[in-house]
Nucleic acid binder design. Structure first.
Length: 723
DNA sequence: TTAGGTTTTG
């Protein structure tokens, strides 16, 4: 900003102003007007400026210095106005557009306050923290491929970034960078401000902000466009968004909807009644509440009784849910759709839960009416004929007719399944079918081909079907939970790594102590030909690690084996803990059948020509009897003649999903749930269930009291177009 | 201060 000094003589300027300049009055100033040839004559006060010497000093008759002002440097301009000339307060403060510098995420330094741009990779919509403020956690990425997780706090909900989707783009000003657990972390500092933009390529660039005043330069438009293009191929969008018509017992999904009713249920849960104009194809649960507790337009609630669904929100979400306005538009993140059936019910129903906690971004966001998704939803809701939806009542939702107006893909899929078998045989195709009654009347053991319907199955909670099986002693056990692993790790961390065992001929060791000085960690990288390998090929052993650390290492390295030091060797931990981790899969050994051998046997595998680090081979050299993940389910099969319970014992073949991966992979869980919903669609009459072709074998189980015949499914797989 | 991303089992 050039500064020229005008010498005043008796109230007149000695050097006159250029004649093309016209005086403008403060009270007539308007946003967006061109003031190139206008001036205002007032007394200014400028603070917080920087004096910069001009390169052209002395040549053009101007003062040889600039005064540079910027918001970032805390500059402010004060203008004294004369009474009566302006309606504004006596002192007006004008922000001056500063030039901001934006730091790429790979150049962040501990202890600095910076401005930055980023694409939202993950976010938790604002929720009430345990302290005094709202909190929103946001993870950003930029083309440097570095991630930054920010904890943003504010007592004012409005001043937190208005992020609605993964892929949104944010601009943060004055965010403080700190190092936490070896990584950079962002945290709100004084003067934090943010803008949020839709991340869709080609969408209008309209910043979402609560600040009345903000700067946005033309060149920033380009930054947004560039980030959008980068994000399109580098950021995967968030989990499946769904309409109510498309819900599956899919475990978790985000729903954009309108709130039509709400009610207090008890201290730890709260009911939200919402709709999105589509109809859920399954019977949905209704949470019983007292009529007096239900807030909402009674007539509308009645009209929407077949379209609105009940969502029960728990714990920390209750307070926010209570404050929601009826009629507002919401995006509810990570709703759990749970299929439930009571033993006395013929059909199962779907329940919608928003569980407590905020992991995976679980929470409730209020969307403004300007949001494009809301605009679209509103238009759709207005087009829904509520008389029609009432008529649908006569078409019982438990008996969906194929003439039902809105035939979803699922319906078409199910129609196909009613004609063809949803399972196929992988062998013995020449056998002919046997009726179930004949089978139950025949002695075991025998093998049969059957054509039957899946009446029901157990467990309904599919994750409970995964067990660990020892093929040596034929025992089955539950998959240990993470608390057990955590406990074992905790105990083993009390023994410090033995320095004498570091850097053996076949591994290289790295050790350090945690910041609190409480824990010593040692990692031993197994070498090959005395060389370290790429991380993705490396097996490492770790002492003193936590669950989280081990989990992270297992993502990065090929194999992780938790160990502890003894006086003269490294040894495996208790076999209730996984002896090996690969990616997200934890491998366990049978306590009864394993005889652990020295870990140095691993060096024999490292010396092999084709190094692959196969779990079976690792188990073998370590003397571990490897437990295999298996699905165990009970299918109740029926045909025109009778019914029988057959067990499914499947490592991978039936579902074409490895049982070892299901517990840690949401996508596979959803896939399995969808498969089961095709085999046994919830809410269907028996006549509408699809056929299954299976092989079953009968076998005897004798105990002291009696002999019982059991049935097991074998050589059968789910049809290719079902999975 | 709060949270510090990694799903409940009601």
């Amino acid at each position: 900003m050039p500064v020229q000094l005008l010498k005043m003589m008796k109230g007149q300027s000695e050097t006159p102003l250029p004649s093309h300049l016209q005086k403008e009055n403060l009270q007539h100033l308007q946003e967006g007007r061109d003031y190139t040839n206008k001036y205002i004559q007032e007394t200014f006060i400028v603070t917080g400026f920087k004096v910069v010497k001009l390169p052209t000093a002395g040549k053009d008759g101007r003062h040889d210095c600039h005064l540079e002002v910027s918001e970032e440097a805390g500059s402010a301009v004060y203008i004294y106005t004369k009474p009566g000339t302006t309606a504004a307060s006596e002192t007006a403060s004008v922000s001056v557009a500063p030039k901001y510098v934006y730091t790429p995420l790979n150049h962040l330094k501990d202890g600095t306050i910076v401005n930055l741009y980023g694409v939202v990779k993950f976010f938790k919509p604002p929720y009430i923290s345990k302290g005094t403020d709202y909190c929103s956690v946001v993870t950003l990425m930029d083309p440097s491929n570095v991630k930054l997780t920010c904890s943003l706090f504010s007592g004012n909900l409005d001043s937190l970034p208005k992020i609605y989707k993964v892929g949104d783009i944010v601009r943060f000003h004055r965010i403080k960078i700190r190092e936490y657990n070896g990584q950079m972390q962002g945290i709100t500092s004084g003067g934090f401000a943010s803008l949020t933009f839709d991340g869709t390529v080609g969408a209008p660039i309209v910043p979402r902000t609560s600040s009345r005043e903000y700067t946005f330069m033309d060149e920033e438009q380009k930054t947004i466009e560039d980030l959008r293009i980068w994000a399109a191929s580098n950021i995967s969008v968030s989990g499946p968004a769904a309409k109510l018509s498309g819900v599956q017992p899919m475990l978790f999904f985000d729903l954009t909807c309108q709130l039509v009713g709400k009610a207090k249920v008890d201290g730890s849960s709260f009911l939200l009644k919402v709709w999105d104009g589509t109809k859920c194809p399954y019977p949905t649960w209704k949470v019983p509440v007292e009529a007096k507790d239900l807030e909402g337009e009674k007539v509308l609630l009645h009209q929407l009784r077949n379209l609105a669904v009940d969502i029960l929100v728990y714990d920390n979400h209750v307070q926010l849910a209570e404050s929601l306005q009826i009629g507002s538009f919401l995006r509810i993140y990570s709703i759990h759709t749970k299929q439930a059936s009571a033993d006395n019910e013929d059909v199962s129903h779907i329940e919608f839960h928003l569980h407590g906690g905020t992991c995976y971004g679980r929470g409730i966001g209020v969307l403004p009416e300007s949001n494009p998704d809301v605009k679209e939803l509103k238009a759709f809701l207005e087009s829904v004929d509520l008389t029609d939806s009432q008529n649908m009542e006569s078409m019982c939702s438990m008996d969906i007719d194929s003439t039902f107006g809105n035939v979803t893909d699922l319906e078409l899929h199910l129609q196909r399944c009613q004609q063809l078998s949803v399972t196929v045989l992988t062998d013995h195709q020449d056998l002919s079918n046997t009726e179930l009654k004949t089978i139950t009347n025949s002695p075991a053991p025998q093998q049969y081909r059957i054509r039957a319907k899946l009446r029901t199955y157990k467990p309904q909670k599919l994750h409970q079907s995964v067990k660990l099986h020892c093929s040596k002693c034929n025992s089955l056990q539950e998959v240990p939970d993470r608390d057990e692993f955590d406990f074992i790790l905790h105990n083993s961390a009390t023994t410090a790594p033995n320095p004498e065992l570091h850097n053996a001929s076949w591994y290289e060791s790295v050790t350090w102590t945690t910041q609190d000085q409480k824990r010593e960690i040692a990692i031993h990288f197994v070498k090959r030909d005395e060389m370290l390998q790429h991380p993705e090929d490396t097996l490492l052993m770790i002492e003193g690690g936590t669950l989280k650390e081990i989990w992270k290492l297992a993502k990065r390295f090929k194999c992780v084996i938790p160990v502890r030091s003894t006086e003269d060797d490294l040894e495996l931990l208790d076999l209730s803990a996984p002896f090996l981790l690969q990616g997200s899969v934890k491998y366990y050994g049978c306590k009864k059948c394993s005889t652990p051998k020295p870990v140095k046997n691993l060096s024999s595998i490292a010396a092999e020509q084709q190094l692959s680090w196969e779990p079976t081979e690792i188990a073998q050299v370590l003397g571990i009897e490897l437990l295999q993940y298996v699905f165990i389910m009970k299918f109740t099969l029926v045909d025109e003649t009778g019914a029988l319970n057959a067990y499914l014992f499947d490592y991978e073949k039936f579902f074409q999903i490895p049982a070892s991966e299901i517990l840690t992979n949401n996508f596979l869980q959803q896939k399995m749930q969808m498969t089961m919903d095709t085999l046994c669609p919830p809410g269907r009459k028996l006549g509408d269930l699809p056929w299954l072709e299976c092989f079953i074998r009968s076998y005897n189980v004798r105990d002291a009291m009696k002999n019982q015949v059991y049935y097991q499914i074998f050589d059968t797989t789910v049809a290719e177009d079902v999975v």
